[in-house]
Simulated assay, not measured.
Amino acid sequence: MGFNFTKWHGAGNDFVLVNGFTETILDFEKTAIAVCNRNFGIGADGLVIISPSEIADFKMRIFNSDGSEAEMCGNVTRCVARYVYENKLTEKTKIELETKAGIIRPEIIFENGIFNQVKVDMGEPILSGALIPVIGFGNNRIINEKILVDTIEYNMTCVSMGNPHCVIFVDDMKKINLNSIGPKLEVHKSFPKKINVEFAEIKNEHHIRMRVWERGAGITLACGTGSCATLVAAVLNNKTERKATLELDGGNLIIEWADNNHVYMSGPAQEVFHGVYL
């Protein structure tokens, strides 16, 4: 059975959006694997189903390119917010989205009547090792702790933004072979639910260069929750101010860890094309 879709990206992190109000997908895992294949499918980092919610304006389910379901994704949140507004599924510019990580609140920002960006209240970071989860730390924070991979020792800071992240600060991003180390860290025995991996190079107190290996998707051009986790980790390690530009492979995001303990993410959301998947 075919379905209509729209392809979107947020700073290069790309997704196939499906309107669950009108379209039917019977097997999400199998469909995500097929649709996200860049040679034989549409090509994307994830498949996203937008459907009715009993507790928010919309419900958003996210399936990675390997078929696994993600709790949350910051970049697709911006895309979904703009999608539902521009396709007249809502007249609201401040929207509530139900996710597996809870209610997420994006706001569409206009400048002189023209779309500018989407700002998302990503909620409060989770810093308890047991809740991220990371084995061996109890409820303690995991800040600049050692982790061993292939006889190489790294210093990690772990944060959950509704999904788990391991942030490693490096002096020179060019020396990191993300294709090699990313998948090994993702499935490291310390992480019972696997983990997203961010390598970050501090440029200055307001600028971080970051690359990401996403759990279930591999290297992606951007990661919204990963950017939030990286800014939080940088603050915890006294490396940056509480607001900074995150420079990603696919573009920039503005992240702020505000005084109310919520993390805010601002960035682009762009439709690429739409069509019918047969």
Rank of each mutant, 00 (worst) to 15 (best):
V134W: 01
L26S: 15
G123R: 03
D121I: 09
N144F: 03
I114D: 12
I109E: 02
T77W: 05
E86T: 13
I55C: 01
M122C: 13
L89Q: 05
G102K: 07
T22H: 12
L127W: 04
D57P: 08
F40G: 10
E23C: 08
Y85E: 07
I132Q: 03
Y83S: 09
E54N: 14
T99N: 07
L148Q: 11
I126P: 09
V149Q: 06
N37H: 15
Y83L: 08
F63N: 05
T93K: 12
K88M: 00
A81C: 06
T77M: 10
T90K: 05
F115I: 06
V48W: 01
F110I: 00
E91M: 05
P52S: 12
G113K: 11
F137C: 01
T90G: 04
G46V: 05
Y83N: 02
V80P: 03
A130S: 15
G74P: 10
T93L: 14
R141Q: 14
L26G: 00
Q117H: 14
E54F: 12
I108A: 00
V118M: 07
I50F: 01
A101W: 03
Y85I: 12
E124K: 15
L89D: 00
G136K: 07
I142H: 02
T151S: 15
G20L: 04
V16D: 08
P52R: 12
T151H: 15
E98H: 03
C79Y: 05
K119I: 15
K30F: 11
E54A: 14
K119L: 14
E145V: 03
I135F: 07
I95G: 01
N116C: 10
R82K: 15
G43V: 05
I49C: 09
G67K: 09
V134R: 02
K100G: 01
S51R: 09
T24V: 14
F40P: 13
D45R: 02
S51I: 06
P133V: 03
G136W: 05
V118N: 08
